[in-house]
Design a protein around this nucleic acid. Structure first.
Lengths: 219, 219
DNA sequence: AAATATTTTTAGATAAGTCTAAAAATAATA
DNA sequence: TATTATTTTTAGACTTATCTAAAAATATTT
């Protein structure tokens, strides 16, 4: 149906407009996200606009059309379901699944992805805690809080991370944290921004401001 | 490492030289196998020769180099392991698995395929009975007999099929046959070539010459 | 508002893979 | 062996996706 490249562009636009909480996205942002040049992005945006997958006006930024958004959500669905497969069934760590899922997300077969969904028990979240769109592309977005916004002493549950980089995920793992871990933030060092966090076993760890901002929790 | 297209060419050359039991393969045969034009094949053969993946001399046919054969066998390994996954875990019929595996076979990750292999219990054959190369590309080739060569009254076990077309596989299924079914060929109609076959439950079915030639058995 | 900086787009080139039509080589037949 | 038929290769064009360098538009500063 659509090429790998087209799918990657649509996914990137979806991701950026979601992160920036605005539908319009810039050429440069897409180029950076896809590790390519702005000129290449302009070329592709013209093609996507031709196919009515995006709303694009020269120099004015770009946004997904309904069809484009639907395609992007299907790719996200496939990506996250494959991540669950890799993590739950093949025992890959959460820092390893992303890269392989980048390839698997482009496999074309509705029957395959729906059976995989059932086989995995219709999971609602991927190994990083991100929600998985259903067959129709519907996405249930929960409003998680970054740990650095939680009041001291307020116990909460780790529900996800907003940075999927290997280095960050590895350090989260080293601290013994994972989805579902109960956390209680304690003292915050106003000078260097570090935060003390108490774990269920009573152990106390110290994490930096940047990490605290990328650990998502619910109360 | 290698592109989808390169992998498909190498796999096609491997398949043809295996089927024809000779290492040299013709341009036209490859074109037909890949549903493309002879001119395109010539172009690609030059590139593959450049990369030392094939031994190619103008007008003289082509054969795989050691490296080319190794790549082809890894693709075959991936294809067949994914077929087992689709069949055993996701419950796809044996006539459905080939098409999806054609896509999955190009996913690049040694770690993935080796874990998948373990997860599936290191199967020795795919759902059609074809042998699966091991990590190192070694293939244990059993010498199966087509059913039409088996003597009347000689009981045997269905071990594979040498045609993977949907129409053939569907009719095999309709007869109630599958890998492991015990078959006893009976009378052969010399006029129209049909063969009577007795099943374990005593039922007798009649199959055509062409089908009998594509059902592989061991005694 | 004018000058400068940044972002975005155009123009033209490149690489991978494919195609058609025609030429060259090989194989088959009279 | 000469002629015909088939197979294979070349030549040149097309598509998709990319790039660099330069031009145009928009934003930011002074």
């Amino acid at each position: 149906m659509y090429s790998f490249t087209e799918e990657n562009y649509l996914k990137a636009i979806y991701k950026l407009s979601y992160e920036q909480k605005q539908s319009e996205t810039s050429t440069n942002a897409i180029a950076e996200e896809l590790d390519t040049r702005a000129a290449s992005v302009t070329d592709m945006l013209k093609k996507l606009a031709e196919k009515q997958l995006v709303n694009y006006e020269k120099y004015k930024g770009v946004s997904l059309s309904d069809e484009g958004k639907s395609v992007a959500l299907q790719v996200v669905r496939k990506h996250r379901l494959w991540e669950v497969f890799l993590h739950d069934k093949l025992d890959f760590g959460w820092e390893e699944v992303h890269e392989i899922a980048e390839q698997l997300e482009h496999i074309q077969s509705d029957r395959l992805i729906n059976r995989l969904d059932d086989y995995l028990g219709n999971p609602k979240h991927d190994p990083h805690g991100d929600p998985i769109p259903d067959k129709s592309g519907a996405l249930f977005i929960e409003n998680y809080l970054p740990l650095n916004k939680v009041a001291s002493g307020q116990a909460c549950i780790l529900t996800g991370v907003s940075d999927h980089s290997t280095s960050f995920l590895k350090s989260v793992e080293k601290w013994g944290l994972g989805i579902g871990t109960c956390l209680t933030p304690g003292d915050k060092n106003e000078y260097d921004g570090t935060l003390e966090v108490e774990l269920p076993n009573g152990e106390k760890i110290v994490i930096g401001q940047k990490s605290a901002a990328h650990i998502l929790v619910k109360i």
